[in-house]
């Protein structure tokens, strides 16, 4: 899981062009959206697409749980590992 967390941090930096941010600066249990890292709704779509492409998982935008999966890097890692298994 720790490796996946680090992998996701690098994915976030790459696909969202966060060129001035290092993986260490993304705290795994701090919010990705709004406060914390400060990502927005377009980032959410872009990140969702990148996860679908890389891990071949499907994301249901209507599902209430989707929002909580995207809360922070730790919850994303749990979601990805759960969906891939």
């Amino acid at each position: 899981m720790k490796e996946l967390v680090e992998e996701l941090k690098i994915l976030i930096i790459d696909v969202l062009n966060l060129e001035d941010i290092t993986p260490e600066e993304i705290v795994a249990d701090e919010p990705l959206f709004g406060e914390g890292l400060g990502l927005d709704s377009i980032d959410a779509l872009e990140l969702g697409l990148a996860l679908q492409k890389k891990y071949k998982i499907s994301i249901d935008a209507e599902n209430e749980n989707t929002k909580s999966h995207f809360a922070n890097v730790n919850s994303l890692a749990k979601f990805v590992s759960g969906s891939c298994a």
């Binding site: 377009i42 980032d43 779509l45 872009e46 697409l49 679908q52 492409k53």
Partner: peptide, 9 residues
């Protein structure tokens, strides 16, 4: 391929 939402917007 799926389009990048950012690039599309």
């Amino acid at each position: 391929e799926d389009l990048s939402p950012t690039a599309f917007g």
